[in-house]
Design a binder for these strands. Sequence first.
DNA 1: ATTGCACACGTTATAGCATAACGCAATTGA
DNA 2: TCAATTGCGTTATGCTATAACGTGTGCAAT
Lengths: 132, 132
Amino acid sequence: MTTPQLTKNQSLVFDVLEKAEGPLSAYTILDKLRDHGFRAPLQVYRALEKLLEYGVVHRLESINSFVACAHPGDDCHSHGIVAFAICESCGQVMEFHDHEVDHRLMAWVRAQKFKPEKTTIEIRGLCEACAA
Amino acid sequence: MTTPQLTKNQSLVFDVLEKAEGPLSAYTILDKLRDHGFRAPLQVYRALEKLLEYGVVHRLESINSFVACAHPGDDCHSHGIVAFAICESCGQVMEFHDHEVDHRLMAWVRAQKFKPEKTTIEIRGLCEACAA
DNA sequence: ATTGCACACGTTATAGCATAACGCAATTGA
DNA sequence: TCAATTGCGTTATGCTATAACGTGTGCAAT
Ligand SMILES: [Zn+2]
Ligand SMILES: [Zn+2]
Ligand SMILES: [Zn+2]
Ligand SMILES: [Zn+2]
């Protein structure tokens, strides 16, 4: 998926996510953009929908939040499943991928004749700093 | 985790999930139990909290729903990560585990000194019947 | 027996997440 | 020009989850 020129709202939302230390909820993004004219959740959700489609933002299903892609331009997104480790203490997110994990999961779905559309791998726990 | 005797509310919620064809949201469970005296979401959520703790019910993070464990008594839950394939058309859920996937993910977190607490693997797509 | 505690439960209210439905404006392409 | 598409703004609504308070019950420890 090639990324087209972002619209004004899409750029605003993306900038907020890129500058954030960790994942943000849609409503947190909304609050951060009120000074820029944002008034309603849909303005955020519509921008996020496109950013997710372009692959420059990821949704963390287990915490209802969004994060900027940590590997922009990396082609791993096109041929692999992305995984996340989320610190429940400081909110830090690590994005990674593992081809062997991809292969095993895809082998399983192929055996079941299941047709995958979207795969979520999220590990919640404590990062090194917070676990100490 | 050994499962203690379930309370009345816990049993009601568990029975609904066991008899269901697929995953149910907390509010769907609530509706199904109104005839049994359920009036408020908390009655469902409190029961679910315990059932999740006992490991007899799983939460599907990507669709905000709950499902009865497909492998009751199986010891794989105690030493492996459970994965789900969820059909977005018919709602059917397949629960499985793969030791190699577990191993790879745990190797990664160990290398990062990340301390995992709860891992989610959910594949959404179309089951064999619905993909035809 | 009385006290203290843990636990399940019921109720009301509130917080947090996401989308439906309407209309308008700008862009594009036939 | 006309139609189709896309983005945008607004209002309203629906869905998901928890906070806070109080009740009752069972079961020790004193
Ligand atoms: Zn990414
Ligand atoms: Zn941390
Ligand atoms: Zn299970
Ligand atoms: Zn299906």
